[in-house]
Design a binder for these strands. Structure first.
Lengths: 197, 197
DNA sequence: ACCTGAACACCGTTCAAGT
DNA sequence: ACCTGAACACCGTTCAAGT
């Protein structure tokens, strides 16, 4: 009932808080994200938040879990080409996600979220799923190589795209004249340089 | 005068605050770093901080600048071998710095610090110097290649080590059975895979 | 120039109480 | 089960005042 003012039971407060958190992340970052502001946006008292999340960290872990789910989806989208070319496009999707959802991406790989991951089964599972999409991409790109080489290539390609993501996201590459707008072409070029054809 | 209680003029409050901040960063991270706690450790009132730093962000930028200086030093330490091998050891030093000074490394490349970099000449200069050490390392490793290739290799190698730094730092590679302790050997191996001999 | 004390507007978190 | 109101212990930041 959207017309009704302040129903005593919100109905979907948990989701409303997560949505508000995601918006806050992408516009102003984690630092200024406060539970009290999220509660205000959702139209409830700040104490209501604690009925759905144990504390601020728990809410952030829930947001991060949704982030990993969305990342998995985007990485799973059918990429043009086969094998090595498809893997490159998967890498582009990774960097693109980071550039488009900076605050969320930083949160997903932040110390605060990572530290609490062992005790949060949902988060753990979501993160693992995203990793497995990458793993399958590498396997498809190099079906003939042995398992040890696959592992090496997973680490190498993850490092490359994760590094590019961080550098583009924080605009560090301005020092060589590159901005976020260049992320796709640069990612393709760097991954090509790995020479896994 | 170390025996004297609470001199009215601290004498080196600025440095004391920066030292305390660095310690706080490496033990508990930016999130829980408060100006009030730093002031307490330095033995002054919290308001005294504002005589040396405009606000919390300014203090963090100063810490980050010192971080870039230290990174430059560590990257400049003479590495064994020549050319490609020396560049690999420079990469190892980069990842090693990140692993040993997690909180500081994260801060240096955080959005909060990066955003204020344009207006902070000291920080800007320190960050640029660190980049130039990397640039020279790449140039020495590949003296024969043209400038465009050098630029490509700078981006690629920076991305690789920056990505490995982030992944090791946040223990993301546990999913493939790797921990921080493996950072040096893995970094060497991945950089070797680039094939710039 | 450098520091203190008091104040303001914010937080995260807890808890008894209401429906 | 879900939300409110009031409370507590913290913050960052400002500013008049002291030496």
């Amino acid at each position: 009932m959207p017309g009704r003012k302040r129903a005593y039971h919100h109905g979907h407060l948990r989701e409303a808080l997560l949505d508000a958190a995601e918006r806050a992340l992408d516009s102003r970052g984690v630092v200024t994200l406060t539970l009290r502001a999220l509660s205000r946006q959702a139209g409830v008292t700040h104490a209501a938040t604690y009925h759905h999340f144990a504390d601020r960290s728990a809410l952030l872990r829930a947001v991060a879990a949704r982030g990993f789910d969305r990342l998995s989806e985007e990485l799973s989208a059918p990429a043009p080409g086969k094998g090595a070319e498809a893997l490159r496009e998967l890498g582009v999707a990774y960097v693109s996600f980071a550039v488009r959802h900076g605050g969320l991406f930083r949160l997903m790989f932040s110390a605060e979220v990572t530290r609490g991951r062992a005790e949060d089964a949902t988060l753990q599972a979501s993160a693992l799923r995203a990793f497995e999409v990458l793993l399958r991409g590498v396997q498809r790109a190099s079906p003939e190589v042995d398992e040890a080489t696959v592992r090496q290539r997973v680490v190498a390609s993850w490092a490359v795209v994760h590094g590019l993501a961080g550098l583009f996201l924080e605009e560090q590459l301005q020092v060589v004249g590159l901005t976020r707008a260049d992320h796709a072409s640069v990612t393709r070029q760097v991954l090509k340089g790995l020479g896994w054809e």
